[in-house]
């Protein structure tokens, strides 16, 4: 907004105070969690400046459950899902953007159905299907329902449609076939969209919980969110310091990545949101 409407002394001062107050309220739960995690249990709800710092809670949480394995499972899940999504969505989006095939409009509407009816709500039937396929309790089964992503197809189709036809023609004159065209022209031009979609997808699947909870039941398949829930509900009783330490630990990779690439994250989410 222009400087003209901004600078209005008192009103602006009040607004700045309001904005900061809201920000402090918003960040407080995390600051609080961090406080609990780095202090001995006795200080978990006792705020004094000279409280001793400790990394003990993290060490105890790490030893109390196979978190290394949970992390590995999540990394496998997230990278497998994203890789499949990128390939499948690129091909489908290319078809929708550049091939006038029979039934294109109907198929596109059928793809968009998934924006409303997400795999998240089809848990009962998808469990039945996984059971029939014999892959219950596998990392593949967690990611499979999400691999053909309507959101990804939609986003990439919009981007591909903005590629100028002249570029298309020029490459064709050079003798490129349409798969080379996709790889050499469309994919590089859609880079920002890929980054945006990638970040949204990674944070979605890193955080996903209900479906992984249903479809997994062993240490070798459970992702970090399910591992955390099993850990905090069964093993720990009410030792909040350890639970918050484990909680921060599970969110740490995303949180650190977010703090480092904050602008990129926010812009990616923005890009993904503009339709």
């Amino acid at each position: 907004m222009s400087a003209a409407l901004e600078s209005r002394g008192l009103g602006r001062g009040i607004e700045t105070c309001g904005a900061w107050l809201l920000a402090v309220i918003w960040i407080l739960p995390l600051v609080y969690a961090a406080w609990t995690a780095v202090h001995p249990t006795a200080y978990s709800a006792h705020f004094v400046l000279d409280a001793p710092l400790t990394a003990d809670n993290f060490a105890r949480a790490w030893d109390a459950a196979p978190f290394a394995r949970f992390f590995l499972n999540t990394v496998l899940l997230v990278s497998m899902t994203l890789a499949a999504q990128l390939v499948l969505c690129t091909l489908a989006a290319y078809a929708f953007a550049r091939f006038a095939f029979f039934g294109r409009e109907v198929m596109f509407l059928l793809v968009l159905v998934q924006l409303m009816i997400m795999p998240d709500v089809l848990i009962v039937e998808n469990y039945r299907t996984m059971n029939a396929l014999g892959i219950v309790d596998s990392i593949l089964a967690i990611g499979l329902p999400y691999m053909a992503s309507a959101f990804g197809i939609f986003l990439l189709r919009q981007t591909f449609k903005t590629v100028p036809a002249e570029l298309d023609d020029a490459a064709r004159v050079e003798g490129a076939n349409f798969l080379q065209l996709l790889w050499k022209v469309y994919v590089p031009l859609a880079r920002p969209t890929y980054i945006a979609y990638g970040l949204v997808s990674v944070s979605y699947h890193w955080n996903n919980f209900l479906w992984p909870l249903i479809i997994t039941n062993s240490v070798t398949t459970r992702p970090i969110t399910v591992g955390l829930q099993v850990f905090s509900s069964v093993d720990q009783g009410i030792d909040w310091s350890i639970i918050t330490a484990a909680t921060l630990m599970t969110s740490a990779p995303l949180l650190v990545a977010f703090l480092l690439f904050q602008r990129q994250f926010v812009q990616s989410f923005m890009r993904a949101g503009i339709r």
Binding site: P29, L30, Y32, A33, S203, W206, N207, F209, I224, T225, L228, Q229, S232, I243, T244, T247, L248, T250, S251, L254, L255, F258, F265
Partner: peptide
């Protein structure tokens, strides 16, 4: 960007 499950624990 935090998992809902982590947030719920806090």
């Amino acid at each position: 960007i935090l998992p809902m499950i982590a947030v719920a624990n806090i």
